[in-house]
Design a protein around this nucleic acid. Structure first.
Lengths: 276, 276
DNA sequence: ACCGCAAGGTAGTTATATTACTTAAATATG
DNA sequence: CATATTTAAGTAATATAACTACCTTGCGGT
């Protein structure tokens, strides 16, 4: 809804734009106020507010307020809370799940679509894929390998840094590597990427924005999750990384058109019965 | 809010309970209707509706409606949609993320807290943990191993079914196994669990409710995610499994009290700089 | 300069929420 | 057991908010 207002703004009349600005400036206040106070704040008349609502496809001010309220609610429904020693297992489950959900919501709001497009193109122009991740990120790399190797090009994941170095030294310009790291500051992964780039391989990173790793890659799919408070390893960024890689893989598959999707679905069914 | 109404219902007066029932019966209709229509539907007078709102801590009907609307919005903000070949990469990312988020929300709403308590107890009473998962679930098992081996007892994950069989045959009553499977119907995992139970080991399963695997385990942490439409492997249930296992591990840690949490946090920081 | 049309405001109407008051019911008390 | 007292719930009145119809202003075209 808020996005809708922003994109519709240009097509509105002058006074209605004032209303739009007032709403955008403080949407929370807006849902609680009446037509009058909103009109005052926007320095327009009340009917103008109504016309503004109609322009956005609502029958009236009430409906507009309702929709906006729902929009705001879904924006920050799941907020992160620290786990404490006093928590019951019930509290704890709720907090951890809310935190995980919040992190995915954050990714949804921040995902760089241009980068995604570029990443898809890099895959399409490569001959083979290698996935590098260590520690917790090794799990993500392995998961992604399962997806990518079904897309028709060889895909392999390495978790040992030394093997990563060796593998990177054997790459060429037709290779694509996907480097996964939470912080984007691990020495090992940076060295690996350096070697790979030396061999003219393309690099997609799945890591934190503006980290050294992000800087050194052709495309960075950002996963910026604060994990100060995670008791263990950064589960949340791992979830985010997995989903982002899933999006990349599905994005590639969708470029292949309906028949590729169909083929993949069949492959999946075949595996399902046997393995899971 | 809806839960609040349900729990507050008993403490309300008779006619206010009628209102509560009307709201619970059709909350969606409620947010769109006026005081009048709601009063009619509940067969009470309009002031009674207001008194009901006040009893719930709202200043008036409007605020009540707003809060209810926001509650409903956050309930099903992220609904699942099929990916089609016509989707842009932007559409696709949104759909996949919404689906992933929706699946976590579902887990939050359905998580069995008694089972979680029992699972924590099983861990506390065991001497060592083995994690079994094949295919996609191998990734989850490996991820969970990283968490559990920091809790002070040996933890190991096996992904090869034959090795799982062999390992299970070497267990005893002090061992705990965590069996991970999307469907809970894989022959291999069922056979492994059968062997393990024969050796009197305890079994926690992370799988679909009422599946054969769930039936054969001491405790089942349910992860019921429909994945008919996932193009690839079941990412969503994998996310769910990972989060559920994280909850279990953190639950165990929290039982260890403040100092255990502190110790784990320190361990995490030490690893962070080196590995991620 | 005049006409026409669109934008935006004024004033009035209707609907809606809220208050004050009254009646009915239930419980306590002599 | 009848009467007082408190509480619950409805009626009627009022204030307020939302919406409609209409009117004025300003702009672009002939």
């Amino acid at each position: 809804m808020l996005d809708k207002i922003k994109s519709a703004r240009a097509g509105l009349r002058k006074s209605e734009q004032k209303v739009a600005d007032a709403v955008i400036e403080d949407p929370d206040a807006c849902v609680q106020s009446s037509i009058q106070s909103l009109a005052q704040r926007a320095l327009v008349s009340e009917p103008t507010v109504i016309r503004f609502c109609r322009a956005l496809g609502c029958v009236g001010f009430q409906q507009f307020k309702l929709r906006l309220a729902q929009d705001l609610a879904s924006r920050d429904a799941f907020f992160y809370q620290d786990v404490t020693a006093e928590d019951s297992s019930r509290d704890l489950a709720g907090k951890l799940l809310d935190g995980a959900i919040a992190s995915l919501v954050q990714i949804r709001n921040q995902l760089n679509h241009e980068a995604l497009e570029l990443a898809i193109e890099l895959y399409e122009n490569c001959d083979r894929v290698e996935l590098y991740g260590s520690g917790g990120s090794a799990v993500v790399a392995q998961d992604a390998q399962l997806k990518f190797f079904r897309l028709g090009k060889p895909a392999i994941a390495y978790s040992d840094p030394h093997i990563q170095h060796a593998a990177a030294a054997l790459l060429d310009r037709s290779a694509l590597i996907i480097a996964i790291s939470h912080s984007g500051r691990s020495r090992d992964i940076l060295r690996t990427v350096e070697i790979a780039r030396g061999m003219r391989a393309k690099v997609i990173s799945v890591t934190a924005t503006k980290s050294p790793l992000a800087e050194q890659s052709d495309v960075c799919l950002s996963v910026d999750i604060l994990e100060d408070s995670d008791v263990f390893s950064p589960v949340k960024s791992r979830l985010g990384q997995m989903v982002v890689l899933d999006i990349l893989a599905v994005g590639v598959a969708v470029r292949g058109g309906e028949q590729m999707l169909e083929q993949l679905a069949r492959a999946r069914r075949a595996i399902d019965f046997k393995f899971l």
